[in-house]
Structure formats: C-alpha cells, structure tokens
C-alpha cells in the first residue's frame, strides 16, 4: 500500500509536482500515466527518499521510506535501469543487493533465471547490455528481496513486445498474490494493458484517477444512427452533451442505457451503440494532457 498525500515539489518558481495525492492499493497494479516531463519521475524519487518534497508526504505500508529498516525487503525499486556502473557484471550487481539485504546466496541465480538472463549474459558487464537486458536486471534487483511493494519507473522502456508481455504477466501474478505495484509510463497503451487503476498526471498535477473500468466509462458512449441530426437534437434536449466523432458517429458522456432511452423516446433508429473504450481513453489522455504537455498536442 502506497499513500501519497499533498505532495508538492518546487524548483525555484517551477512547480514540478503540484499537490499530488493518490493511493496504490495491494492486489492491484496502479499505472502512473503522463507525458514526458509531467512529474512522474520526481514523484517517484520523492517516494523513495531521493528527493525532498517541498510539502506533503508519502507512506509505504504506513511508514515513511526512511523509517523502513531494510527497505529492499519491503519495497522493490527500479527508477532507471541505466543507472548502473558500466564496469560491473549483471551478476555482481545482484550479488551486491543480495549481500546488502542479507539474503541467501542462491537468490542471485534464482533471480537471474526469473528474469531470463542466461549465465553467460549475467557474466557480461552491464556496459554491454541492451536497454531491455538492463530493464530485466533492474526488475531482478527490485524483486530480489521479495518485497510487498514495487515502484517501477518506465519499466517497459526498451523491452520488445515479447518482453512487455512477459512483464505484464509477471506484474499481474505479483499483484494477484497481494502485492502492490506502481509503475509509470508515458505510453497509454502500456498502462492500458497492465494497470487496474490509473493515475493520470500532466504538468505536475493529477488530471484524472480511478479504476480503469471507471475511466473507460467516463470516456462515454459512441452512438450512430440513420438520422444523426435528430439524435443529436434529442440528446441536447435531454441536457446531454454530444459531439461528432468525425466518422459519422456521436460521442456523448452519457452511458449506453441512457442514450438508448433517449433514442427510443425520440424514435430514432440506432445503428451502433457502444462504450467508447480504448480509443476513448486515448482521446482522454491526449485531451487531458494537451494543454499541459510540453510539445502541445493539437487540440
């Protein structure tokens, strides 16, 4: 369980993190979604005590990170897979973690097998690793202490599709056994595939949060009809906003049942009625972050 309360970080006059509050619950994978530079990594660094917050606090299983006596056994952390001494071998990096946490020596080979790094690869220096191999090693380091909580910053970066699939299964199984997983990504698709709960952040501020199903619902309904003009009029009469999707349909905030009722009352024959999933979440992601995104996506 991770609890973030009123977290704020100021650099000079810039607000990198602005009053961020959320929880990541046990048994669930929480996706921390936002464009690059939104404040995800800063928030995660504050969680593990690498950066001091200007205000607010974070507790992990009820304790602040610094109060954890042997943090590696309680929280697995992967902030940047490339932040390793290029001259150490993968096995050596795991051995250092194993020694520091006071774990049995066999744990190193177990973890190498768990993340599918071969003995040959483990004996090579990390400087020669691909980003995908570094991510695997980083995940092995995070998991070696068998922690209850995982904090992973962009863990899917550099993984091939099979690797992303592997990680999804790994994190799913971990959460199903009662673990808490918080992972960040700037790619909506990754989060959509892996997460149960989503916290969306833009320009340091939380713009949306909830379970994935809730957010999908919030994305509304797509509806098509033979007489689109009359349907739109009927929806407007009911006080429901409706906008054209651009391909001969309408998007509305109302759920499918309500839209069906409105259509029935108005006597409009529908040709399609469905929840605006997937694409809807993506639209929301772009919409919610376009005003706060660095590059500024077209609105």
């Amino acid at each position: 369980m991770i609890t973030v309360e009123g977290l704020t970080k100021k650099y000079g006059t810039t607000l990198a993190v602005d009053d961020v509050s959320f929880t990541a619950a046990p048994g669930r994978v929480t996706g921390f979604l936002g464009p690059n530079g939104a404040g995800k990594s800063t928030t995660m660094r504050i969680m593990v005590g690498l950066t001091r917050p200007t205000a607010g606090n974070v507790t992990i299983s009820g304790q602040t990170f610094a109060d954890l006596p042997n943090p590696g056994l309680e929280v697995g952390v992967l902030l940047d897979a490339s932040a390793q001494h290029a001259g150490r071998t993968g096995r050596e990096i795991l051995t250092l973690a194993q020694r520091l946490m006071g774990l049995p020596r066999t744990r190193v080979e177990e973890m190498l097998a768990a993340v599918s790094l071969t003995p040959g690869e483990a004996s090579r220096r990390v400087g020669e690793y691909s980003l995908g191999m570094r991510q695997r090693l980083g995940i092995a380091t995070a998991l070696i202490g068998d922690p209850e909580v995982l904090i992973l910053d962009e863990p899917a970066n550099g993984l091939d599709p099979a690797g992303i699939r592997w990680m999804r299964d790994l994190l799913r199984g971990y959460a199903d056994r009662g673990g808490t997983v918080l992972l960040s990504s700037h790619l909506l698709h990754e989060i959509e595939v892996i997460a149960d709960d989503i916290v969306m952040i833009g320009h340091g501020r939380i713009v949306s949060r909830g379970s994935k199903t809730e957010l999908l619902q919030a994305a509304g309904t797509i509806v098509r009809a033979v007489d689109l003009v009359r349907l739109e009029q009927a929806l407007t009469d009911w006080g429901l906003s409706a906008s054209a999707t651009g391909d001969g349909g309408l998007r509305t905030e109302a759920d499918a049942a309500l839209v069906g009722t409105v259509a029935l009352e108005a006597g409009v024959a529908l040709t399609e009625l469905r929840a605006a999933e997937g694409a809807g979440l993506e639209e929301m992601f772009l919409e919610l972050t376009s005003t706060t995104q660095r590059e500024g996506a077209p609105s």
């Binding site: 697995g76 768990a114 998991l143 995982l150």
Partner: peptide, 14 residues
C-alpha cells in the same frame, strides 16, 4: 511466467 514475488507473509525485518 515468473513466481519471483510471493507476497503477504510479513517477516521480522532487522
């Protein structure tokens, strides 16, 4: 698929 993270048993942490 990996069974690398069994979870809930809380250990005495030193």
């Amino acid at each position: 698929a990996v069974t690398a993270g069994a979870v809930p048993i809380r250990r005495a942490v030193h």
